[in-house]
Write a protein that binds this DNA or RNA. Structure first.
Lengths: 133, 133
DNA sequence: TACACTATATGTCTCATACATATAAATGTC
DNA sequence: GACATTTATATGTATGAGACATATAGTGTA
């Protein structure tokens, strides 16, 4: 789902970057809400095209978030085209999103820490080229 | 496995930070090799105690890395105490580790990017407190 | 004997994701 | 009208990564 950047380290499917869809969905919802198909586009735009989440996965995440009270949804009334379900973030959802911010920063830190450790263990004399991001 | 920092976002077990054990193991191996139990301690030290990997998981990772030619191992001869298997990284392992560095930097960037997006969507006026890590 | 520490290993569960596919309604094209 | 494409939601299934529990031995010690 990463688009750009080789699949790298022996991954066929599955996890690899760890939990990006949920926070991305929450970010899109916090900005403006809307229906799933549109949220997906919004995520692409928010991340400059770097994160293109799986549609099926996104819908599953949205329904689970609703089950747990972090978003609400309803079938959009009127309008042409296929039925669409509009999502809105709740106050609890905002709190969850706030937790995610801290969590993502921690992940960011840990990724950098490990990258530095690996790099120095390999004898790369401090190639922090991409450091920070 | 994170120790320090709440479990956060609805996780019981499983993925959540995404692939840390393998690169951590490679870092420890690149520094000095050794047996599994010791590598685990080494990982703890490399990360200032922030990453304390599951022992069972570490052994599984080591054996898979060996299957794929990224490390070699042999039962240590002599010595007292329970048998131990000594691991060494191969040239291919070093190349894999090098790929991991790039991959981790990308993850670091993506985590920061998402954290910023979420934070700004929530109306936090640029609280990049923990930014960079 | 009982306990703790070292050391390796397997079982089982959850979480997060990728890829494939099913379903419909509308829209465009021939 | 027939057909493909786009919008939109949804399920099936497989893989990967990790958490927690537990099994197994050897070794030292109270």
């Amino acid at each position: 789902m990463h688009r750009g950047g080789k699949p790298c380290c022996r991954r066929g499917g599955g996890s690899g970057g760890g939990a990006l869809v949920e926070p991305a969905a929450l970010a899109a919802l916090a900005r403006q809400g809307g229906h799933g198909y549109d949220l997906r586009r919004e995520i692409r735009e928010l991340t400059g095209g770097e994160l293109d989440v799986d549609a099926g996965g996104l819908y599953r995440v949205l329904r689970r978030l609703e089950e747990d009270g972090f978003v609400t949804s309803a079938w959009a009334e009127g309008g042409s085209g296929p039925q669409r379900r509009d999502y809105e973030i709740t106050e609890e959802g905002r709190e969850l999103a706030q937790d995610w911010v801290a969590h993502l920063r921690e992940r960011q830190r840990m990724s950098g820490l490990l990258a530095d450790a690996l790099s120095s263990a390999l004898g790369n004399d401090d190639d922090r080229t991409n450091k920070e991001g």
